[in-house]
Design a protein around this nucleic acid. Sequence first.
DNA 1: ACAATCTATTTTACTAGTAAAATAGATATG
DNA 2: CATATCTATTTTACTAGTAAAATAGATTGT
Lengths: 180, 180
Amino acid sequence: MNYVSVVSRLVTMENFAAPGDFVDAARQGWAKARPELDVSSIEVMGRITRIGALVTQRVEHDLAPEDITRAEFDLLCTLARSGRPLRASEVTAATMLSGASTTKNADRLARRGLIERLPSERDGRVVLLQLTADGHALVDRTFPNFLARDQELLSGLTAREQAALAELLRKVAMNLEVRH
Amino acid sequence: MNYVSVVSRLVTMENFAAPGDFVDAARQGWAKARPELDVSSIEVMGRITRIGALVTQRVEHDLAPEDITRAEFDLLCTLARSGRPLRASEVTAATMLSGASTTKNADRLARRGLIERLPSERDGRVVLLQLTADGHALVDRTFPNFLARDQELLSGLTAREQAALAELLRKVAMNLEVRH
DNA sequence: ACAATCTATTTTACTAGTAAAATAGATATG
DNA sequence: CATATCTATTTTACTAGTAAAATAGATTGT
């Protein structure tokens, strides 16, 4: 790419919209406003938080007809994939919410008959949470739709690209999780 | 990899902890609980939402000493990189929050003297938001720290890997953004 | 020009999430 | 074998975010 095409690309991007995605626009903004800053890391981290927020909103929207929040659905899915009753504290660790939220979400799901609270035989402080038949049914009915929606989002990528992306994200995730 | 090594890897991962990151554990759970489901898409989407949530929490924690929320900081950074006063509705579009939240956040930031509200000359309904000198100073003082933290998270990846990751994420982001 | 309609922001009334205190059961120590 | 300390969960008191109503200014059609 020569000087002219670089310039014409910049002019195009500034004056005639469509500079790629949200993060491309943000990066261009920083390049102009604070040219001395190296903002290259937002190419990855900005996109991750942006995509994460958009996907979360979409999931919430799709769950509205079930009259269930994303956090409650997350709790149900955590129990569904664990195959055994989990302690409230295990659910808290898996869902990234506070213990107080786990109590609240478990209350609402129990009132709706989607989960049950069991006492632990070993430890009287512990509350075990497990899906009821209705809870299992809800997960079995709705979870595949979310998988399909996710696949759709990745449909622009080849299988090889999806695998490469997953592997790169695993590295970032592991780096992040070791720091708590 | 032969049959034995596959089996030994599975056994290792099930019985001796450390199956990689959070998503590896979740995927194994689904594989056992619902072997008929193709949950491969969570390798990407699950990691994006997980990393997004962890990074968001970390940013909130790091902003606590400034007595400012992540949403407020996001508003300040949006103004800082735009280089001109923005309409409240432009800020709303950039921050992924509701208009009501923009009003609330702008209220608090204006009370603290970090932004100013200006009337638009063209349209009496419009409120323009712009940084004060104090607001600029706060962004200049703190934003570089967040860039450094983000770079640290990506330090396990080569420059080539970071570029590949950014490019793959851009594809996903653009696919998502065209669907609103 | 003037009602009808549209649009940008704010206000109101509400829900979700949290930190810290309270509660209750387990464990350790003298 | 108490009693002090630790741990798991719940309750309380609060903050952040939102949808929908209210407000106020712009636009459109006649």
